[in-house]
């Protein structure tokens, strides 16, 4: 049994939210199935209206599927009594950091989750300190959230989830409202959590460069899975992605263009270093 199982999920919105949909149909998720294993770092990629945010809110039962089921460790999110247990295991971080923080002091906000779980005060203190250190915000623990930068606020929001010690964190476009510096801070934190704490990460994004950091990449388009594999595998299908108006990382695109121009470039470079190496190799051959 996989850690998270999504089985034949169908979901549709009311007509009013529908106007922004590109495919004019009400259904945002069409018979979608996927499973995520413990410890994986999965990126969910797709453009607006592909159903990726809807799916994100299903992993911890904020939204319920119309048909099909979402199961976390075998617990169905439709089961009201299991919801708290599911949310203990799967945390959700939203796009706007401002709207997720409850308290006026950083450490009290981080304590909010563990307090809801009814944990002993001493243990909460330990978890809060640990969570703030994990996101590198410990020295800001007595600050007011509204005085922090976007990236810092988002890291506090992540700390708030970590303090609940979940097995998995779902992040719904956590960097969409941040500047490049903030994006980097948040992405570094996410990668670190996955590698060092073995927390399963499901990252919803529309930035290709962020998606390339994941172990596994799932591309959603029109409520269906378009591609599923390692970033290298997925981004090697440049034509397929382009035909669904999706991009690939710039380095991948450069390599792809050079390749179609006749150069013999090996593999699919995902970042600048790999790209430089690949081009360097070609140049040295000549």
């Amino acid at each position: 049994m996989a850690f998270i199982e999504v089985e034949n999920v169908v979901f549709s919105y009311e007509a009013e939210a529908e106007e922004t949909e590109s495919n004019q149909s009400k259904t945002v998720l069409k018979n979608l199935s996927l499973s995520v294993e413990k410890g994986e770092f999965v990126a969910l990629l797709g453009h607006n209206g592909s159903g990726k945010s809807t799916l994100a809110k299903m992993f911890n039962g904020i939204l319920q599927p119309e048909k099909g089921a979402v199961k976390v460790c075998g617990m169905n999110t439709a089961d009201e009594e299991k919801l708290l247990d599911i949310r203990k295991k799967v945390g959700l971080v939203l796009q706007n950091p401002d709207n997720q923080l409850v308290a006026s002091i950083v450490e009290e906000d981080v304590a909010f989750g563990p307090e809801n779980l009814g944990i002993e005060p001493k243990e909460i203190r330990r978890r809060v300190d640990e969570a703030l250190k994990a996101v590198d915000m410990y020295e800001y623990r007595r600050h007011a959230p509204h005085k922090l930068s976007g990236g810092q606020k988002q890291r506090v929001a992540i700390a708030g989830i970590i303090a609940m010690e979940p097995d998995c964190i779902v992040l719904d476009e956590p960097t969409a409202m941040l500047d490049p510096q903030g994006r980097k801070e948040v992405m570094d934190t996410i990668v670190k959590l996955n590698k060092e704490k073995q927390i399963t990460i499901i990252l919803i994004t529309h930035y290709m460069d962020e998606a390339a950091l994941a172990d596994r990449l799932i591309v959603l388009d029109g409520g269906k899975i378009l591609a599923d594999g390692t970033p290298k595998e997925v981004f090697s299908h440049v034509e397929l992605l382009k035909s669904h108006s999706l991009d690939v990382p710039q380095s991948t695109e450069l390599a792809y263009k050079l390749k179609s121009a006749g150069l013999k470039i090996d593999g699919t470079p995902l970042n600048v270093e790999e790209c430089v190496e690949a081009i360097d190799k070609v140049l040295k051959k000549k």
Binding site: L94, V102, G113
Partner: peptide, 18 residues
């Protein structure tokens, strides 16, 4: 939504850090 995700379910069974 964020509060629900963080298991908020009213004052019952809630502890405080401080």
């Amino acid at each position: 939504m964020a509060m629900e995700s963080r298991c908020y379910h009213g004052g019952e069974g809630r502890t405080r850090m401080k």
